[in-house]
Write a protein that binds this DNA or RNA. Sequence first.
DNA 1: ATATATATTGCGGTTACATCA
DNA 2: TATGATGTAACCGCAATATAT
Length: 248
Amino acid sequence: MNLNEMLGGEEYKYSPMAAVDDESLACLNSIATARKKKEKNKRRFSDEQIRLLESMFESESKLEPRKKLQVAKELGLQPRQVAIWFQNKRARWKSKQLERDYSILRGNYNNLVSRFESSKNEKQALVIQLQKLNEMVQQSGGAKQDSEQRLEQNSAESEADNRENGNCEFEVKPNLSLERSEHGGGVLSDGDSSIRADYFVMEEEPSLLTMVEPVDGSLTSPEDWRSWDSESVFDQSSGSYQWWDFWG
DNA sequence: ATATATATTGCGGTTACATCA
DNA sequence: TATGATGTAACCGCAATATAT
């Protein structure tokens, strides 16, 4: 900051600084000090002045020139002082507003984080539950095959018994077969639909888990989750069978 | 009508000082 | 009492706009 800047104000603005010698410099320094003392004496505005300025600012953050003159006259201030007060006030208000906005945003963010965490935990629990169910389904598939084999064996034995006993009046249809239904489930059929039972079979595991756990680990859209409720997964067959009925 | 100079105003950043813990 | 943090009046430099020449 040069001396001209130190002195400031209109009366010093256009001073010929090039011609300043040491003595003049000292003189001007003293003038600057005097100005500072003068400023120091009339430093803060009075409470009454502040009150009026604040109330003016509440109604309008920018003063029209005419209003500025009026307020200055009313408060016994220079119009420039009023203008500067409004400038500073706008800057302070803007700064405070930034703090308020930041605080609100931070609150929203924290809320979102906690909701995300609880959703993540819930999802994890569901994935574990899903895995257990898959295991149970696979086990029941094996049991199905065993029972089918046993059925075939029994019917063969009874046929033999019948032949042995010469009793051919009660013929049991032995042609139970295991087919794939159109929706991926299985149909236990006796060939002419006299015995028919849908059973639930999961889609291949990897596709299930892929849907539950997207590659990027982020939550998918609500639409994705909606399509994944238990109803739509387990209640695919049109019959009255429920998935738990099969081994229940 | 157009170009240039000058004045005014607002804003961001800074300084100097007062006040307070 | 000394000191660092904070608030505030005033200022500077710049850009945008209005007004005069």
